[in-house]
Design a protein around this nucleic acid. Structure first.
Length: 458
RNA sequence: GCCGGGGUCGCCUAGCUCGGUAGGGCGCCGGCCUGCUAAGCCGGUGGGGGUGUACCCCGCGCGGGUUCAAAUCCCGCCCCCGGCGCCA
């Protein structure tokens, strides 16, 4: 029973209100939830008492002599009418209560910085050496030392070419214009070296995580509505999810969705936890709320490949697992040689399922900004409650909701954009990260060390 | 897609024909017994509400229906197995 949100609702609704306020959402919904829950419990008791009466009569009937039966049956029938009225009311209240409960976001972990937007994110560490074009130096220092973050950097005097330009005009290894024409904006064709790079990045992440003991999964790319809503909130659903026409199927926006659904309804023995999965899948996103942000290039697209870490953990394990997931992601990006910082995401920017979130943001030399490449969340029991995923504690036979966690390992297209800006030489040549060598070597036409600009006439 | 068989409290299974408190085994939890372990014995082992205990309600894939009463009868859907058809 102890779903943390329901428990808070009954024992100390202030905890919930606090969470709502930290998320800059209307906290009065909590009062309504408390009221509905109280009314629901009151009605349930009445209904149960009536049902009990009815059951008693029902059980007497077969033991009665035939001549007495008729009256009893009539009595039961009368009572049934009353019960039906009450049950109808109960159902209404219950539906209202559940709707309110399901609309509540997760609690907010005490270590989450409070603030309405990303400017309140707290950088916690940095790694790698950032190339900073002189013009961006002030901005870079504000984003690092300005918030107490020590990050290594070198000032460069040439301005790197932006990843979108690089892709389309310098390397000529992508065509988003044709893709816009035949699919719509935010789609792309990638060619040759960048396709190899896409595949190699995925293999790199898969290799690393499986060697750490994560179980490799190729999940379904579509889920039923019911399972989709177990994983995300309604507004994300509307903004992100594609539907298959005429079927109860929805394209996943990340392997996280399918990996959470993997154990829907299951009971996981405590000695098997934590369960660590690495999923690889395409991701489909409508980007409905994105407007014209990042409209050029392949930074924000409707479709990409991603390797995803997913964990099921005991409540007392989950915060350690959370740190492990982000440090796995960090190790992958250190391996690629991409300079990044990790931020503790502000309360106002948390998704509804997450109690705490780290973003890994890579420095983009041509944009003079840090951009999010990895998102690592502890969803505690928010998803597992909806999907009815519980652990079984052998000692004492206790059943309770597991904690679920997810983190990007590598998202292919975004990582490619980061490589295009960071591994660029003044001549417009792209250095292939050495760590990908293993995954390119065995293919005769795959790039090995460098990706070169297209010749003028091609 | 068609035809047939099936889905029971973690797992296995009885009950369904003929409606009347869902029984057994395994595993697990607690206890007893025992020099220790094993065996044996007793109790527990789905969800919810409650003065949190002696209670009550709901629960047999999901949703409806018939009935005083449904695991059981009827209808729709989902999934699994087998056969046929189609197919990379």
């Amino acid at each position: 029973m102890p779903w943390s949100i329901l428990e808070a609702l009954r024992k100390d609704p202030e905890i919930l209100k606090d969470a709502l306020r930290k998320r800059y959402q209307d906290a009065s919904i909590v009062d309504r939830a408390v009221e509905l829950d109280r009314e629901w419990r009151r009605l349930l008791n009445e209904v149960n008492n009536l049902r009990h009466k009815h059951n008693l009569i029902s059980q007497q009937i077969p033991k009665l002599p035939p001549d007495e039966r008729k009256a009893k049956v009539e009595e039961a029938r009368e009572l049934l009418k009353t019960i039906e009225d009450y049950e109808k009311k109960l159902e209404e209240i219950e539906a209202a209560r559940d709707e309110v409960l399901r609309s509540l976001p997760n609690l907010v972990h005490p270590t989450v910085p409070v603030g309405p937007d990303e400017s309140y994110n707290v950088p916690i560490r940095a790694s790698g050496r950032a190339k900073v074009y002189r013009e961006f130096l002030d901005n870079f220092l504000a984003l690092t030392e300005g918030s107490g973050l020590k990050m290594d950097y070198e000032v460069i005097d040439w301005k790197p070419i932006g990843h979108a330009d690089m892709l389309e005009n310098v390397l000529k290894l992508g065509n988003t214009l044709k893709a816009s024409e035949v699919a719509s904006s935010r789609f792309y064709y990638l060619f040759d070296d960048l396709v190899w790079l896409d595949m190699a990045l995925l293999l790199y992440a898969i290799d690393y995580l499986t060697s750490k003991g994560f179980k490799l999964v190729l999940p379904p790319y579509m889920l039923r509505h019911q399972f989709m809503l177990g994983v995300i909130d309604l507004s994300t659903f509307k903004d992100a999810i594609y539907k298959i026409e005429g079927e109860d199927l929805y394209l996943i926006a990340t392997a996280e969705h399918a990996l959470a659904a993997l154990h829907a309804g299951d009971e996981l023995p405590d000695d098997e936890l934590p369960l660590l999965y690495v999923g690889v899948s395409p991701c489909f996103r409508r980007e409905a709320g994105a407007g014209s942000r990042d409209i050029k290039g392949i930074f924000r697209v409707h479709q990409f490949h991603k390797v995803e870490q997913f964990a099921y953990a005991l409540p007392e394990q989950s915060w350690d697992v959370f740190e492990m997931l982000i440090s796995n992601a960090e190790e992958l990006y250190r391996g690629l040689g991409l300079p990044y910082r990790v931020v503790n995401v502000a309360s106002g920017e948390l998704g509804a399922p997450a109690a705490k979130k780290y973003d890994l943001e890579v420095w983009y030399p041509a944009q003079g900004k840090f951009r999010e490449l990895v998102s690592c969340s502890n969803c505690t029991d928010w998803q597992s409650y909806r999907l009815r995923i519980r652990y079984l504690r052998r000692k004492g036979m206790i059943r309770d909701y597991v904690h679920t966690l997810n983190s990007t390992a590598i998202a292919s297209t975004r990582t490619i954009t980061a490589i295009l800006e960071n591994n660029q030489t003044p001549e417009g040549i792209i250095e292939v990260p050495k760590v990908l060598r293993n995954y390119l070597e065995s293919f005769s036409r795959a790039p090995k060390d460098y990706i070169y600009p297209a010749r003028k006439n091609s």
